[in-house]
Design a protein around this nucleic acid. Sequence first.
DNA 1: GTCGTTGCAAAAGTTTTGCACGTTA
DNA 2: TAACGTGCAAAACTTTTGCAACGAC
Lengths: 143, 143
Amino acid sequence: MEQFRKVCRENGIKVTPQRLEVFLEILGATDHPSAEEVFRRVRRKLPMISLDTVYRTLTTFDELGLIATLRSLEDRSRFDPNTREHHHVVCTGCKRVMDIFWPEIDALSMPPQVEDWGRVETKHVLLRGTCSTCLLKIESEAD
Amino acid sequence: MEQFRKVCRENGIKVTPQRLEVFLEILGATDHPSAEEVFRRVRRKLPMISLDTVYRTLTTFDELGLIATLRSLEDRSRFDPNTREHHHVVCTGCKRVMDIFWPEIDALSMPPQVEDWGRVETKHVLLRGTCSTCLLKIESEAD
DNA sequence: GTCGTTGCAAAAGTTTTGCACGTTA
DNA sequence: TAACGTGCAAAACTTTTGCAACGAC
């Protein structure tokens, strides 16, 4: 909690009761809650908090690297005619997606914790980064 | 195209101009278009097609295994307090997500096609399957 | 002719935003 | 007190659904 105040100070954002409660709630969560679920839980302590504040707070925390957001390709589904096992790399700049074939990954056996968990049906790797075109663009903008 | 008629016949769905055009368009696509983008392209050939038909058609094709849908965890974002590198397995039954630590994957170097592509910043593996609780439930329902 | 499919419109669900007010630093 | 952050309400956006008309088999 002192840690949290410190992170806020370092990043120039204010410590509000809303941010503090969302922080405490999400840090104790092991079940990957949705924004709606976080809202439900935080409201027990802070009944007047609004859902859009929860969204704004989660976005802020994600930007500060305090939490990770699970979502694959931005906000909408994309469709792929290739149904063979393969993977994807997406550019955070231009949002373009490239197929990857990666036999080493396909061949890997599951870690023990997953064997106990149940039956795995599919495996998909998503890489994020910056494509060479966008890298060039960023370099030329830096002039 | 004859292939497509055959798949439809085998699965008991009708061959409509809409389905045919969506099929032709998506099979030629290498850029992982969104539903909206597929709609835009198909409309060039079939100006009267509606967006909801495109959605329905894409869903149907996905169910038949003709295409793959890229989307991570169902429809909404989920948040994870764990920002160390790790991966996830999600149960298609109960939608619960479990963290996975998988050093073998983390240590793998990128395939050559990715080295050329640009700079990769993050790597995330998503497994889908059925957790043991849901497996038991399915078995008991099968009685 | 039957029944699955489409188009339209409206709804549903998640996430974002404009704005006036309140709170933090 | 000067920004920043919040709550409210409404909007934006993607995706789904009810229904009458239509078209494939």
